[in-house]
Every structure is written in structure tokens, then in C-alpha cells.
Design a binder for these strands. Structure first.
Length: 705
DNA sequence: CTAGGGTTAG
């Protein structure tokens, strides 16, 4: 044996020589051909080696030696030569179970799941009985394909073959049900296990962690810690996911300490899970620091960081990382693209949106329905419902999420009629609406003043078997409230089947602010202050309501309340994109290099507005300023600065696109309407909640926002 | 030669 090995170490330095000699050695030195070719195959690193060996096998009449051919298929598969392996398999006269296992393993290795199932089925037709090594591949393939019916047939076959007590296979079945049979079925299998290994525990825990039951996952983890089985790093990855989903930073940190304590902190994939935990819980700095320490070429690590940035409002950093990834030749996958498109949506820059769309179009993901959905959402959020529609039209096999994204997009832009038309088209296409479809529809109606239509949609939900959620109720309150039916909205809330939450009371308060209904507004605000005490938006809304009816002592009271809770009003800013570059302006901002020109333009606008008879509604909108600032700030609101800058830096007639971090104020809204007319420009403003398209002196929101 | 994990659209 040692002689054979020594021989083969030379073999690939002089492959031609060794191949020509091999027959001689086998025949005359009595070397066992099976060991000989096994060693030779194990040294093979490329297809040409395999071909040479294959030729030798034919020459020496060994091409029907099952042991060698099994090994051959195994090695070919490892070298990613699945097609070649298949060819050799097909040439074998009557393959028996080892050969079948080898070829099935090869497909399994590269996630060619359909092929795994197909070969398993062919094996049955060839009346070859599977053994205990066949089933794990097949079960895994069924799990990956979500093919629970086939999986059950496989399970039946396992019983027929007498493997029902095989612990390995039981864990495989458990994993199958975790992936596609639901947690209850998986639980039955888990409870039936006599010996629960770390793999069994991890499977069931991950099942709950992945199917939206993190609390149950953690409960079973506690149970596990009471058993003899010690969790390993893969178990902890699942637990980290449970904590991330619960956004339980405290427990997540405790687990981080545990990881360090048991010496697993340098396990790369566990560190990735930790990065993801911090990113998801809003601890972007902590995540970035872990990320920087690793910075390995692992797409999941980069995805975790990119999506973390995107979710926590660091759209620019998310996109920066995306570009860095490309420049480092780390291949983005579908998840990377989704997160980056999401970041582009948050950024609000149409220029960036187009460039992202362009990237997708030139990539292998251009027909990925998930990504198309994200693109539709992105264009809608970046102000172009038309481009969103274009992507929508080009999307093949539109599912309910695609349709819903487009409906929500129309809603965002106050195009209620288009949303309704699309809904009818969707029904004609036999796509069943879901809960989000109705949120989109009701919101679209609400933003367009289509009260009856919106109400009918809400009522029709039960016909589709959809239970209205908190969000649906909030949309209806918004629908009724915006149209002035405040009492109806309040009665509607009282009749809700569960406790109204922040979104419901928030909708009512906004409506009360529009219609200056103090009593109801105070009531809603009171609820909000206890449910969501740290959100400054609610305080500002109530303060605005008081100001609109000249209740200055109320304004003062809110200010004191905010101070006592240590809150400051969010500073307003507006961004505008010029030549693909986003620039931000704050109230009274003088830092811009062209600020002289900008202020000149602002003053010019101010004078034109006065000529036009623009009257400042001074009480309702200047809540956040001291009286002496009022006059000054009229022309300094950040939105006005952005418009002025847009006017001096673009050609006449160019659409201006502005993004604000707060709601549009009454004065700015009124002024922007007039400005759109007097400079003959379309001005698109994205505020905190929706889009306003200003054109010819009117706004798409119909003055409801 | 076999079973468990991390990123994920409206």
C-alpha cells in the first residue's frame, strides 16, 4: 500500500508516465486495482485527470467495477463535474445502491434538488432499495423544495425499508417538517425522539426561530439547558436569531457574553449572527465594529451589515457598502440587491433609484420577482409612480406582493382611482388579495378623499377571509378623520374588537388637528402620551392643534410636558437632489456655498408670493418658534431654501424633487402650491408620510395630509 | 458517502 501511495505522489508530476505504467504495475506487481485507482482518484484535481483515468479503466476492463466507479462519481462530484459524473453513472450497466447514493450526493452537494428527487424516483423504478445513506439527501432536497407530499412518501418508504428506528433519519424527517411541514408536525417528531442530540434540539429551535415563534424557540432552549445535551455554536446562532427578531438587545448581549465565556467568540458564522443581532437592534456602531474586525468575503456578513444600515436609516452607508462589496469582487446575491434597493427607497433620490434599477437590469436578478417588488416600492418612494408602473408592467408572474406594492405606491401618491383600477385588474388576473393589499387600498382612498370606496374595501375584507389588523383600523380612522367625520372615527375606534394602538390614536389626532377638534384631540393625545411617550411627533401635533385655535396656554403646557420628559423637537430639514447629488437644508441655514444667491431667490419668491396675495396663516404653523422669529422664519423654512436652490441650479421647467423629514407645514404647503404656478414648475415633495405633487397651483393631496 | 445555522420584497 505504501508503495502505491509513494508511486502516486510522483504520478501527477509525470501523469503520462504513470498512466502508461499503471497496467504493468497492476498486472505484474499484484497491486490491488481498487486501492490503486482510489489513490489515483483522490489525487485528481481536474477533469483531464478524470478522463485519463476513465480511459484507463476501459482499457483495463475495469469500467464495470462498482467500487471504482462509485469512487469515480464521488470524486467527479467533488470537482463540480456533476454532468461528467452523471455520464459515467449512465454508462454503468446496472447501478446498485452505492452508485445511486454517489450520484444523488453529487446533486445534493450543489443544491440541484430537483435532480436529487428525480434520481431517487428513478432508483425506485429500477427496483433498487435505498439504504440509510440515501434518505438524508432526499429528505434534505424535499425540505429545500418545500415538497412536503414527496417528503411524506419518502418517510413511508423509510418505514417500509425498516429504518424507522434510525436516529439519523428521524432527525432528517424532523428537519423536513421544520422546513415545510409547520412547527406542529416537527414537534411531534421531536417529542418522539428517544435520544435528542444537539442536532435534534437545534432543528426544533431553529424551526420556531424561523417560523415567527421566537418565544417558543427560547422556551425550548431553556429546556435544552436543563438536559444533558450541550448547545453548540449552531444552536446559539438560532438563539441569536430569536433575540434579533424580538429585538431583545439585553438578552442578546447576555448571549454574547456566554459566547465569549464558552470560547466560541471566534467562530466566524457565530460572529456573523452577532453582527446581525446588533444591526437589527439598531446598534449600528457595535455591528460595524464586529464587521470591521472580520471583513471576510462572506456575502451573508455583508448582507447583514447592509440591511442593518438600510433598516436603521443609514441608507447612504448601506449603499456605500454595496459599492465597496462590488469593488472588492464579492458577488452580491439576491438578498444584497434587495437590501440595497430598500436603502435606495429610503434615500429618496430618483437618480440613485435609476442607477439601482440599471444595475439590476444588467444583472442575473432582473427577473427576480422579489427584487422587482422592491424596485416598484423604491420608485414609488422616490417620487416616480410612473417608473414604478413601468417596472410593474415588465414583471413576469406577478404575485400578490407585486400587485400590493403597486397599489401601495399609488396610495402614497394620492392616486386612489388608479389604485382601485389596479385592484380590479388584479382580481381579473385571479390573484387573491391579502391584508397588505387592503392597507394599500384603504390608504389610497383615504389620501384621495374616496371615503365610501375605502369603507367598502374595509367591509369587504371579511369576504376574503382577512381579519383586519391594527393597521387596517388605523387606515379607516384616517379615512374617516381626514374627510371630517371625526365622531364616526371615534365611534369606530370604540367598537374595535381589540385595544387600539399608537397608529389608530395617531390617525385620530392628525384628523383632529386638521379640523381643530380640541376635546377629541386631547383625548387621543393623552392615549398617545402613555402608549408612545418618547415620540416627539405626537406632542408637536397636539401643540399645533392648540395653536390653530389660539390656545397658547395649551401650547405652553405641551412644551413643559416635553421638557419634563427630556424631549426636544426634531429639527426639520429638506433635501433636494441636484445633478445626482443630495443637499440638505435646515431652517435658517447659511452654510451653503451659494447661500447669497439662495437667499436672493428666497426673497424674490417672497415678494412674488406677496404680490399674489399670499396670506400667512401665522397661528397655525409657527408653533415651534418664538414670536420674534416668526417673520424671519417665513422665508427660511428649510423647504423654501431647497426650492430656491433648486430654482437657481436647474433649467426652467425641470421638476424639483424634495424630501423632508417632517410633515409639510400649512404655510409651506400653501406657498409651494403658489410657487409651482408662478415659476411654472412641477414640485414633488416627499414628507414624513406621503408624496405631494405640486403643479399649476394645486397639490395632488387635495390639501389633506 | 448521511441530519442542525446566519442575510430576505409590499
Amino acid at each position: 500500500m505504501s508503495f502505491t501511495i509513494a508511486l502516486h505522489q510522483r504520478a501527477f508530476k509525470f501523469p503520462a508516465l504513470i498512466f502508461s505504467c499503471s497496467f504493468h504495475y497492476i498486472r505484474h506487481k499484484s497491486i490491488d486495482p481498487e486501492s490503486f485507482y482510489t489513490s489515483l482518484l483522490e489525487k485528481s484535481t481536474q477533469k483531464t485527470h478524470l478522463k485519463q483515468i476513465h480511459n484507463q479503466l476501459y482499457t483495463h476492463g475495469l469500467h464495470e467495477n462498482g467500487f471504482i466507479i462509485t469512487k469515480f462519481i464521488h470524486v467527479s462530484s467533488n470537482l463540480k463535474e456533476t454532468e461528467y459524473a452523471r455520464q459515467v453513472f449512465d454508462e454503468f450497466p446496472k447501478p446498485y445502491v452505492f452508485l445511486w447514493n454517489a450520484i444523488i450526493r453529487g446533486y445534493s452537494l450543489y443544491n440541484m434538488l430537483d435532480e436529487v428527487v428525480e434520481m431517487y424516483s428513478r432508483m425506485q423504478h429500477a427496483f433498487v432499495a435505498p439504504d440509510a445513506f440515501t434518505f438524508p439527501y432526499v429528505l434534505k432536497a424535499c425540505g429545500g423544495l418545500m415538497a412536503v407530499r414527496i417528503g411524506q412518501a419518502v418517510q413511508a418508504q423509510i418505514l417500509r425499508c425498516g429504518f424507522e428506528d434510525d436516529e439519523f433519519l428521524r432527525n432528517g424527517i424532523l428537519s423536513l417538517y421544520v422546513k415545510c411541514g409547520g412547527n406542529n408536525r416537527a414537534r411531534v417528531v421531536f417529542d418522539g425522539l428517544r435520544n435528542k442530540s444537539v442536532v435534534s434540539w437545534t432543528s426544533i429551535i431553529s424551526g420556531y426561530a424561523q417560523n415567527g415563534q421566537p418565544i417558543e424557540a427560547l422556551r425550548i432552549f431553556r429546556e435544552m439547558r436543563g438536559s444533558d445535551t450541550k448547545p453548540d455554536w449552531i444552536t446559539l446562532v438560532s438563539i441569536l436569531k430569536a433575540y434579533s427578531d424580538l429585538e431583545d438587545l439585553e438578552q442578546g448581549r447576555c448571549l454574547h457574553s456566554l459566547v465569549i465565556k464558552i470560547g466560541l467568540e471566534y467562530e466566524p458564522d457565530l460572529r456573523i449572527a452577532l453582527t446581525s443581532l446588533y444591526a437589527k437592534c439598531g446598534q449600528v456602531m457595535a455591528a460595524k465594529s464586529l464587521f470591521d474586525q472580520m471583513k471576510i468575503q462572506n456575502v451573508i456578513l455583508w448582507n447583514a451589515m447592509i440591511s442593518g444600515y438600510a433598516k436603521n436609516g443609514y441608507a447612504d452607508k448601506a449603499l456605500e457598502l454595496f459599492h465597496e462589496m462590488i469593488s472588492r469582487n464579492i458577488k452580491p446575491d439576491a438578498v444584497t440587491i434587495q437590501s440595497s434597493v430598500l436603502a435606495s427607497a429610503h434615500l429618496g433620490s430618483l437618480h440613485q433609484a435609476k442607477s439601482m434599477d440599471n444595475y439590476v437590469n444588467n444583472s442575473e436578478f432582473k427577473n427576480d420577482v422579489y427584487i422587482s417588488t422592491a424596485l416598484i416600492d423604491m420608485y414609488a418612494k422616490c417620487g416616480s409612480v410612473d417608473l414604478a408602473r413601468k417596472v410593474f408592467n415588465q414583471t413576469l408572474d406577478k404575485d400578490v406582493v407585486v400587485w400590493s406594492a403597486m397599489i401601495v405606491g399609488y396610495g402614497l401618491h394620492g392616486q386612489g382611482r388608479e389604485a382601485i383600477n389596479l385592484f380590479h385588474e388584479m382580481k381579473d388576473a385571479k390573484i387573491r388579495p391579502n391584508d397588505v393589499t387592503f392597507i394599500g387600498l384603504i390608504t389610497a382612498c383615504s389620501h384621495s378623499g374616496l371615503v365610501d370606496e375605502g369603507w367598502d374595501f374595509f367591509k369587504s375584507m371579511k369576504d376574503y377571509g382577512i381579519e383586519p389588523s391594527q393597521q387596517h383600523y388605523a387606515s379607516v380612522v384616517d379615512l374617516l378623520g381626514r374627510a371630517g367625520y371625526l365622531e364616526n372615527a371615534y365611534n369606530f375606534i370604540k367598537a374595535m374588537p381589540f385595544e387600539p394602538g399608537v397608529s389608530v390614536w395617531g390617525s385620530l389626532l392628525s384628523a383632529c388637528k386638521i379640523y381643530r377638534h380640541v376635546i377629541l384631540g386631547e383625548y387621543a393625545a393623552d392615549k398617545l402620551f402613555s402608549l408612545d411617550p418618547l415620540n416627539t411627533g405626537h406632542y408637536v401635533q397636539l401643540s399645533n392643534l392648540y395653536a390653530s385655535v389660539h390656545m397658547w396656554e395649551g401650547v405652553g403646557k405641551v412644551r413643559v410636558l416635553m421638557q419634563s420628559r427630556g424631549l426636544n423637537k426634531d429639527l426639520g430639514y429638506s433635501m433636494i437632489e441636484i445633478n445626482g447629488k443630495l443637499e440638505a437644508f435646515r431652517i435658517g441655514d447659511k452654510s451653503h456655498s451659494r447661500f447669497n444667491e439662495i437667499y436672493e431667490k428666497v426673497e424674490w419668491l417672497e415678494n412674488r408670493l406677496l404680490e399674489y396675495g399670499f396670506v400667512v396663516d401665522s397661528e397655525s404653523s409657527l408653533h415651534d418658534l418664538d414670536k420674534e422669529d416668526k417673520k424671519m422664519s417665513l422665508c427660511n423654512h428649510s423647504e423654501r431654501l431647497a426650492i430656491a436652490y433648486g430654482l437657481i441650479s436647474t433649467d426652467p421647467g425641470t421638476t424639483l424633487r424634495i424630501t423632508k423629514n417632517l410633515r409639510a407645514c400649512v404655510n409651506c404647503h400653501l406657498a409651494t402650491k403658489l410657487i409651482s404656478k408662478l415659476v411654472n414648475r412641477e414640485i414633488v415633495v416627499r414628507d414624513l408620510n406621503r408624496f405631494h405633487h405640486f403643479k399649476d397651483g394645486i397639490c395632488s393631496c387635495g390639501d389633506y395630509w
